[in-house]
Design a protein around this nucleic acid. Structure first.
Length: 564
RNA sequence: GGGCUCGUAGUAUAGUCCGGACAGUACAUGGGCCUCCGGAGCCUAUGACCCGGGUUCAAAUCCCGGCGAGCCCGCCA
């Protein structure tokens, strides 16, 4: 509805600009506290025609014609700005469309298949709070793109050929695997012990190298060992992901590209490039002309491949299966991903869009699975759910145990996801237990609470036998009602921007603003106690709010409780 | 040393790509609000664009130079 309004404004304005005898493509539409949409097009025209913005504004304004039955109510001039306002028709249509489209309200008609790769943590231990920033950003983006209409496939790329996995395999031969612990945590313990031992006793290092070689050549017994170790770690990782509502459609092992010969084919293609060179037996490509000074190594002098080489093959495979690719990567991958893109471009292949997120560190410094310095996602979730349980217990002492546990889970996971996704990915953050466990802040619980409130009103109405099949949306005229309806209407615009800009935090902010608008309505406009005609219209508005709050929460991967 | 990213009230952030109307919000700190649909709520006050230049009618936003923080610069991943 809002996008249509925006189109109407754009065409009314461009007609007016043309009729006034000016020429410009950009209508300079912007959000504004003074209007539903504002235009500063007069500023853009001023230098071109060497006249004052105010004069130009007046001439454009005179020529604005608003068609009948438009979603535009009127245009006002506050020179040099032109402000547009939505019509009653717009508000009424919004209510009807939300009620008609329900769960699908806000969905768009974008097309194309997208492969979105996220998380892809090495299977050498549990997910920690740095990894889940990747997971939450990735999973939320996948949900946004789905709503926007794309066919989305979320992939987890398993790095099974790296040295760290060989260390795990070697560790499992030499250290105790604690069966009483969650599998990924037990793997981490082995990994940490193995690393310590490899540092202390250098003579074991060749044993690990031998394991890597055997795996790369496909030695059956070694392959089984790797498979077992990785499956064990992945079982634990998958459990944590499931707990956070994070979904993957496919798990892709990097070794498959070596076994299938695709990596070799890439190497052969690169060898033929003019920019390829052999230095001390290793194959490299020169990327100076792309602004990257260091040559990129494609193949080691012993003939084995590197992570990047396999990643090239992975991306080639992905691009043949989709229209566009998105990779969610940590800030440490900035250079390597630009190298990857450069080589893909040189080979004439499709490039992925990369979403980089900055690091999550601990107050004492950066995390490391290898050194055992990290806070696991499981640990955070456990603590947050515990805190949430105490909160529910305090607020709803009369409810049963099952209810309290269910709500604690929804609130806890919601709080964690929301806290991660509300911040722009390019901001580095520091994890703080005190903040993570603080529910006083306006976050997911605030939005969930608003949803529960809406549900409660609807339930009370039903209990009293109030129905609202017939209602007149024209009765929704209070300031808070109009503001709320406008908020509902822009949901599709929010999805559109978030999908184009690949910014999940736009949806997070919107959800909070919508809850805000609903709470203001709730405070000032009585529903159940209103006169029957008003009551019916307002109940319809409450139902619309409930639906859009639920849709926004769903897009964020957060559950919407009916009661909490 | 070179490259990339970030720097907005006491704290955490939106806005920066694409320059425009009083820099939006939350927590914290003051004041208020339940005879009323759930107070995990609502209203209200205080308070910020790292520094210095430049471009522009207009700069948090663009350019140059500092300062500070993080990340990267391996035949690791």
């Amino acid at each position: 509805m809002f996008l249509k309004f925006k189109d109407e404004v754009s065409s009314a304005l461009s007609n007016a600009v043309a009729d006034a005898g000016f020429e410009i493509d950009d209508m300079a539409l912007e959000e504004s506290p003074h209007a539903d949409i504002a235009s500063s097009v007069a500023f853009k025209l001023a230098p071109k025609y060497r006249r004052s913005p105010k004069e130009i504004c007046g001439e454009v304004y005179k020529n604005i014609k608003i068609p009948p039955d438009s979603l535009i109510d009127r245009a006002e001039m506050t020179a040099p700005y032109i402000n547009f306002f939505v019509s009653r028709n717009f508000l009424n249509e919004t209510i009807l469309r939300v009620l008609l489209e329900r769960d699908f309200f806000g969905n768009l008609q974008h097309t194309g298949k997208v492969i979105l790769e996220h998380t892809s943590a090495n299977p050498d231990g549990p997910l920690h709070i740095g990894h889940i920033r990747n997971s939450v950003i990735g999973d939320t983006l996948a949900r946004i793109l789905k709503r926007a209409g794309h066919d989305v496939e979320a992939q987890y790329y398993i790095n099974d050929m790296g040295r760290q996995i060989a260390v795990v395999v070697w560790g499992l031969l030499n250290f105790k695997f604690d069966k009483t612990r969650k599998k990924d945590h037990a793997i981490a313990e082995v990994y940490i012990n193995a690393n310590r031992s490899l540092v202390d006793e250098k003579e074991h290092s060749p044993e690990v190298d031998a394991i890597i070689k055997k795996y790369e050549t496909g030695d059956a017994e070694t392959v089984t060992k790797f498979r077992d170790a990785i499956d064990t770690a992945m079982d634990g990782i998958k459990e944590s992901l499931k707990r956070m509502n994070i979904h993957h459609d496919a798990f892709i092992w990097e070794s498959q590209f070596v076994r299938s010969g695709e990596v070799n084919r890439i190497v052969e293609r690169i060898k033929k490039l003019n920019r390829a060179m052999i230095k001390e037996g290793a194959l490299m490509v020169d990327l100076k002309d792309t602004g990257i000074e260091k040559p990129l190594v494609i193949q080691r002098s012993d003939g084995t491949t590197l992570y990047t080489t396999r990643d090239l093959a992975y991306h080639e495979w992905k691009s043949s299966n989709c229209d566009s690719m998105i990779d969610i990567l940590g800030a440490d991958h900035k250079l390597i991903s630009s190298q990857l893109k450069a080589v893909l471009r040189i080979l004439g292949m499709k490039e992925p869009e990369i979403v980089i997120f900055e690091f999550v560190s601990l107050p004492e410094g950066s995390m490391s699975t290898r050194r055992g310095v990290f806070i696991s996602a499981d640990e955070v979730l456990d603590q947050v759910e515990k805190a949430a349980y105490e909160e529910v217990n305090k607020r709803r002492p009369d409810t049963d145990e099952e209810f309290k546990k269910k709500v604690a889970k929804m609130v806890g996971i919601g709080a964690v996801r929301y806290d991660i996704v509300r911040v722009s990915p390019e901001k580095a953050t520091t994890f703080d237990w005190k903040e993570a466990l603080d529910f006083e802040k306006q976050g997911a619980p605030f939005i969930q609470y608003s949803h529960a409130r809406a549900c409660s009103i609807i339930k009370n109405a039903q209990d009293e036998g109030i129905v609202y099949e017939n209602f007149d949306t024209n009765l929704l005229v209070e300031e808070e009602e109009v503001a709320l309806i406008k908020k509902l209407a822009i949901f599709e615009n929010v999805i559109d921007s978030a999908a184009h800009e690949l910014k999940p935090n736009i949806v997070a902010i919107y959800a909070r603003e919508l809850a805000d608008a609903f709470n203001q309505f709730y405070r000032y406009v009585p529903v159940i106690s209103a006169e029957p005609d008003f009551r019916a219209a307002r109940l319809a508005l409450v139902e619309c709010s409930r639906i859009v709050l639920a849709n926004a929460l769903d897009t964020l991967g957060i559950e919407a409780p009916e009661s909490m």
